Amino acid sequence: MFNLIMRSIDWSVGRGVIEVERVFEYTDNNISIRFKENNLPVLDKLLALPCLFMQEGTGDEIAYVGQVNRARIVGGDVSFEYSIDGDIPPILNSFIFENRMALDMLRGYEFSRNHWALKDVDLYRFLLRTVRPRRQRPTVFQIPEHENIEAVLISVMMPFDAAFDAVYIGIQSALARLGLRCRRADDIWENAFIIQDVVALIDRSRVVVCDCTGRNPNVFYEAGIAHTLGREVILIAQAEHDIPFDLRHLRFIRYNDNAQGIAELTVALLARIQTIIGH
């Protein structure tokens, strides 16, 4: 048996309030009667059960498993404090909706109404049977559990070589005119290891530009990370043969290493980036 608390706001603050009259909504009468006294919820009994904390919705909203630690009735509300179990990965509402029969969540507007229900289902057994374990995490660098993409951040991956400074400055200046921020890894020093700065920059970026000129292995590695993280990647190069074989099916922007070539590159890049971000 488990508590299900559905709210229209997120679960980041550790405390919440719900109307007393909404406790036991979408709960079978034969269950709710066991947890009532004088027609009010017996909170101590409810607190002994695990809890599924959900936002309203059936899509990419994130649900958590945890425990209601304290609760009391104040006027017409139940005020409660809770904790999230860090050992259980967050679950998408879409997954819960797909499994709503197994979780006894088949009634009407249950996914779109604030309420506190009680379900006669073994929540942990359900999780063990259906929720996939977290994939193995990288050991060379760290990535956060959830994305935090900066809408105006464009990162540029290119060799750490002064020969590419003019290209980078040209790209940076052009993007600034669109109100976009352009950075490359040597602009920052946030971590002890440069690879962590590179990965963190890619992970925060809306678009990643990779200059394959000279077939630099670091740039190839960074392009692979960007693709794996699902970022929009724009390949540029001074020669077609600089594009690695495995990526030659993708369109790229070829440019000449002179003032006119860099100017033409920035025009082509801006057009592509505007298409991607809808500026």
Rank of each mutant, 00 (worst) to 15 (best):
R132I: 12
R132P: 06
R132N: 14
R132Y: 12
R132C: 06
P133D: 08
P133A: 05
P133N: 04
P133Y: 07
P133W: 06
P133H: 05
R134T: 12
R134Y: 14
R135I: 13
Q136I: 12
Q136Y: 09
Q136E: 15
R137W: 05
R137D: 11
P138V: 14
P138S: 08
P138Y: 10
P138G: 07
P138R: 10
T139V: 13
T139C: 05
T139L: 12
T139E: 10
V140G: 11
V140T: 15
V140W: 13
F141Y: 15
F141K: 09
F141A: 08
F141Q: 09
Q142L: 06
Q142H: 07
Q142P: 02
I143T: 10
I143Q: 03
P144F: 05
P144E: 08
E145N: 07
E145D: 12
E145I: 07
E145T: 07
H146E: 09
H146Y: 01
H146F: 09
E147I: 02
E147Q: 09
N148S: 13
N148E: 15
N148A: 13
N148R: 11
N148I: 02
E150A: 07
E150F: 03
E150I: 10
E150G: 03
E150K: 14
E150Y: 07
A151T: 15
A151L: 10
A151E: 15
L153F: 08
L153R: 13
L153N: 04
I154N: 01
I154Y: 04
S155Y: 06
V156K: 01
V156D: 00
V156A: 03
V156M: 02
M157V: 09
M157K: 04
M158D: 00
M158T: 01
M158I: 02
M158F: 02
M158K: 08
P159V: 02
P159T: 00
P159F: 05
P159A: 04
F160W: 06
F160G: 03
F160Q: 06
A162L: 06
A162F: 07
A163I: 10
A163C: 06
A163H: 09
A163D: 08
